[in-house]
Design a protein around this nucleic acid. Sequence first.
DNA 1: AATGAATCCAACCGCACTACA
DNA 2: ATGTAGTGCGGTTGGATTCAT
Length: 268
Amino acid sequence: MVRAPYFDANGIKKGAWSEEEDKRLIAYVERYGHPNWRQLPRLAGIIINYFLCLNKCLLRCGKSCRLRWMNYLRPNLKRGNYTQKEEQLIMDLHKEHGNKWSLIAENLPGRTDNEIKNYWHSHLKKFQNRNLNNTTYDDDDLNKSKSKSSCESTMEHERPKCELRDDSHHILESSVSNVSTESSYSSYTEEDNKDNNDNDDNNNSWLCFSSRGEEESNREEDRVASWDKATLFDEFGSSFWTEPFISDNAFNQDYSYILYDREDPFFV
DNA sequence: AATGAATCCAACCGCACTACA
DNA sequence: ATGTAGTGCGGTTGGATTCAT
C-alpha cells in the first residue's frame, strides 16, 4: 500500500522505505537526535559506512527522513484502532480547530497529525457532515458505518487494538524533540558510554572496534585492520566525536578499512 | 475466476513560518 | 531590511488490499 521505490533526477530515493533504511535512520537518530534533518541522510550514510565498510548512503532527502521518523519510526506511536474516546476527541477538536491536524494531534498522545488526518478523511468526515448540527456525533452512526464497510472492519480487526509502538529503541527524550546538538549528543556520551563500558570487554566507548565478525572474514569489505579510536580522532579531530556532524571534506576520505561491530546499532 | 470499484494510509509536494547571517 | 536554510503543516497522490458484481 505504498509507493514503489524510485530515484528522482537528483539521485534521491523516493517511495517506500526499506527495512534497512529504517534501521539506519533509527540508528542515527538514536545516536545523535535530529538537530538537522537536511544533513541527516548524508551523515547517517557516512557514519554507518565506517562500520559497514560499504559505500552506501541513506539516499533520502531530509524531509523524507523527518516524515518517516515522525509518522512511523519514532517511539511511543500508537498503531491500530482508535478508541471511541479518541474518535470523539477528534470530532470535538476538529469542530473547534478545523483542519489543524497538528493541534489535534497534540491532544492525542501517540497519534500523528498525518494519521489523524487520514482517519478523519476515511472514517469521521462523513459523520461530522451528517451530524453537523449536533454537539456530539452519533455513536450508532459510526458503529453502523464501521460494520457497513466490510473492507474496513476486516482490516481493522487484523490490526492489534491500539497497540503502543515498541519502545525498544529507547531513544533519548532529548533526541526526539527539538533539542540542541549538544544536549542530544552529550547525553549519549555521558550515559551510554557508561553502559557500553560495562558491556564491552575492551572497556572502550561505542567506538570500540574490536575484532569481532570472524564469520564475515571472507567478505572483501570486511578486511580487518588495526584500527583504534585514536586513529579516528586523528582523522577528524577531537571535535568530530563531541559534535554530531562532520565537515564536508571528511566525506571524501576512504574509511573503508575501518572495522565494524556487529553489536553496534549502526550495524544494519 | 475475473474484473472494476472502493478504501486506506504511507509518502510526496508545495507553501508558510522561523531563525539567522 | 533582505536573503537563505531549515522545519512544520496541510493537501494530495499512488498503489496495495479488499469488496462487489
